[in-house]
């Protein structure tokens, strides 16, 4: 009976011990992925920003500029691209909608971002674009890979349509979460006018004809939770100028937008809670389950060996029989 039990425990010990590396290095890389149907929105605000009034072509201080950013996974498009790419793909349709203090649209820039669901590496397919212009991204955008490393990454900038390093600047704690802080500076760069302008009748083409150009610089800051690779907070010190041409009435340049763009407080709280939850799920696959399984496996193996050793021990000799006293003859 003991030998049978020790064999069952041995099988269980091998099962548990084998499960540990299989979960960490086989299951986790295949299961950890961005779902193709992800939908998320984010509200950012620039309080006390400077905004160009297209009516007077003069920059003015405004109370607040709001940026609503939506990302929506297109599942059907992802499945279609997966058939040729041969890997799990996510297709994100994004919209950055900028609204002035009066609630009117300042700009709206759509984009389509296609990437590997596991590694966040860009996947190139028809439809990849920023504001209607076809692009071929390199680097990451919006999110870092799972198990983010303490190193610089290449980050795609949608305004310039270029990829530049985003530098790891240290480990910090943000609202109780350990995060890696990343920063990227895009120097003043000439960029395209948005296809959709805030004033009716004015188009990117009609502005371009005046010889006026649009320039942009930003300092992009991200606080990234390293287990999930998800930013828990982001900020941008963003400046835009219009330069030269006849549109500015002789002026060399005018500020189109300047502000310190920050995530709205309720979205920060929501994001931190969401990332904390997802972090636990990832840790379950990378740490809790593998280590738990390994420790349990070793314990069960010890128990199995102990039972086996007891089963093999020779049986104890029975109690010594009391010798009957021999009759004594006189």
């Amino acid at each position: 009976m003991r030998r049978k039990a020790s064999l069952i425990l041995l099988a269980l010990a091998v099962f548990l011990t084998a499960l540990a590396p299989l979960l960490r290095w086989y299951a986790f890389p295949r299961l950890a992925k961005i779902p193709a149907n992800q939908y998320q929105d984010m509200v950012l605000e620039a309080k006390g920003a400077t905004l160009l009034d297209y009516g007077t072509m003069k920059a003015r201080k405004v109370s607040k500029v709001t940026i609503v950013q939506t990302l929506k996974g297109d599942v059907a498009a992802a499945r279609r691209i997966e058939r040729t790419a041969g890997r799990d793909v996510v297709v994100w349709d994004g919209l950055s909608y900028v609204q002035g203090p009066d609630g009117k649209m300042v700009s709206e820039i759509p984009e389509r971002y296609i990437f590997d669901a596991h590694s966040q590496e860009p996947v190139h397919a028809t439809g990849e674009m920023v504001d209607g212009d076809p692009v071929s991204r390199t680097g990451i955008e919006f999110k870092w890979p799972f198990l983010t490393e303490k190193r610089d990454y290449e980050y795609f900038d949608a305004q310039t349509r270029t990829t530049n390093p985003i530098h790891y600047k240290g480990t910090r704690t943000f609202r109780g979460v350990k995060v890696y802080y990343f920063e990227q500076t895009i120097p003043w760069t000439k960029v395209a006018f948005p296809k959709k302008m805030p004033v009716q009748g004015i188009t990117a083409e009609s502005v371009a004809k005046t010889g006026t150009t649009r320039w942009y610089t930003t300092v992009r800051k991200f606080w990234v939770e390293p287990v999930t690779g998800a930013p828990v907070y982001g900020e941008e010190i963003h400046k835009e100028e219009l330069r030269g041409g006849t549109l500015l009435g002789g002026r060399a340049k005018v500020t189109a937008f300047a502000g310190d763009v920050k995530m709205r407080e309720d979205y920060v709280r929501h994001t931190v809670a969401l990332v904390k939850h997802n972090r636990t799920l990832v840790l379950l696959m990378t740490s809790y389950l593998p280590w738990g399984s390994l420790v349990l496996g070793v314990l069960v193996l010890g128990l199995s060996l102990w039972l086996e050793a007891r089963a093999r021990r020779p049986a104890d000799p029975g109690p010594a029989r009391a010798e009957e006293p021999e009759p004594v003859s006189a």
Binding site: P35, V68, K72, E108
Partner: peptide, 12 residues
Amino acid sequence: DGGTSPKPLLTT
């Protein structure tokens, strides 16, 4: 993965 979310890209 389920299906594509019916929610729109936000302009409000």
